[in-house]
């Protein structure tokens, strides 16, 4: 029995390492594609993983303005949120509602991260993360639309539905688009990335360095893996998700598409970013209402 428990622990750690390495490489690929499109050589694809390791071993000191214990606990909360999302979503295929809750928790992490640092740039990043909660509104409506179609919010059931009826992306293209905008808003240098806009240095991460930044970067790598996996599982289904190699390929294609958009579009101002996301939410809500009315 104890050996069995040990196996579960090893499996959990191995999956986390896998998710971080894949997420880190994809974020590195994202930077490389953006750089090549903009005519720059760009960093090596390994750069994200290298940075994470570098920060992990760097000396840490606490800024005099930092509000402890939130300042250092927030990095641990961030990694806990995304590891929970990894196990509950990708490993156990549980409910989309739990994942939505964890995604909302990430906003609290970003806000807390910025405010606890005491830096004006960090605070501004934290405040902008509250604005960018507008990106979650399409998520609520997307979940509603998916429920109307599949009569379930359990990821396993949604994948099984697609085994019979084919990929949901063809039946609910607008819902897929709205979810894709959510993915886009989470990507670095995207038109909706107001939280980490360079005009506010590194946004909510400005004053987090050393091991704390490394932990947040690990969490961001896992987050990227989880979000891409959810998109593939919910909208394309077993065609891609049943084989880990096909899942990897799907993730590379999605990341490349997002990188292309990020490289070719300017960063929106916070009010424009929120307005566009609210517009997409309104259209998704209209789609949901129409489906309810039409039965």
């Amino acid at each position: 029995m104890e050996l069995y428990n040990l196996k579960y622990v090893i499996d959990a750690l191995a999956y986390s390492l896998y998710a971080f390495l894949v997420g880190g490489l994809l974020l590195g690929l994202h930077r490389k594609i953006v750089a090549r499109i903009q005519g720059r050589p760009g960093p090596p694809i390994l750069q994200y993983i290298l940075h994470t390791l570098k920060f992990y071993f760097k000396e840490i000191s606490f800024p005099i303005t930092a509000g402890n214990p939130l300042y250092f606990l927030i990095a641990l909360i961030s990694i806990t949120v995304w590891m929970s999302a990894l196990y509950l979503g990708v490993v156990f295929n549980t409910s989309l509602l739990i994942l939505m809750g964890l995604y909302v928790l990430q906003k609290i992490v970003e806000h807390g991260c910025g405010l606890s640092s005491g830096s004006p740039y960090g605070k501004l990043g934290g405040v902008r993360s509250v604005f960018s909660a507008a990106a979650e509104v399409p998520l609520f409506t997307v979940i509603g639309i998916i429920y109307l179609l599949t009569k379930s919010l359990i990821i396993e059931d949604i994948i099984r539905y697609q085994e019979i009826h084919g990929p949901i992306i063809f039946q609910l293209p607008f819902a897929a688009f709205a979810f894709f905008v959510l993915l886009l808003s989470k990507a670095p240098n995207s038109p909706f990335a107001i939280v980490k806009d360079k005009s506010i240095v590194s946004g909510y991460l400005t004053e987090h360095f050393g091991i704390l930044e490394s932990l947040i970067m690990i969490a961001d790598g896992i987050a990227w893996f989880v979000l891409l996996w959810i998109f593939l599982a919910v909208f394309i289904g077993p065609l891609v998700v049943s084989d880990p190699l096909m899942t990897l390929l799907g993730m590379v294609v999605l990341t490349s598409l997002i990188s292309l958009i990020c490289a070719l579009t300017p960063l929106l101002t916070p009010n424009h970013s929120v307005m566009i996301q609210i517009l997409i939410s309104a259209l998704a809500l209209l789609d949901l209402l129409l489906r309810i009315v039409m039965g």
């Binding site: 499996d11 191995a14 999956y15 390492l17 896998y18 390495l21 894949v22 490489l25 090596p44 694809i45 390994l46 993983i49 290298l50 990708v90 490993v91 156990f92 295929n93 880990p244 190699l245 990897l248």
Partner: peptide
């Protein structure tokens, strides 16, 4: 429950280790 893709994990760890060697 999804199985851990240990084979892919080995491949990615090898690629990253090779990458570190190449960079150095």
């Amino acid at each position: 429950m999804e199985e851990v893709p240990y084979h892919l994990l080995c491949c990615i760890v090898s690629l990253v280790m090779g990458g570190f060697l190449g960079l150095t």
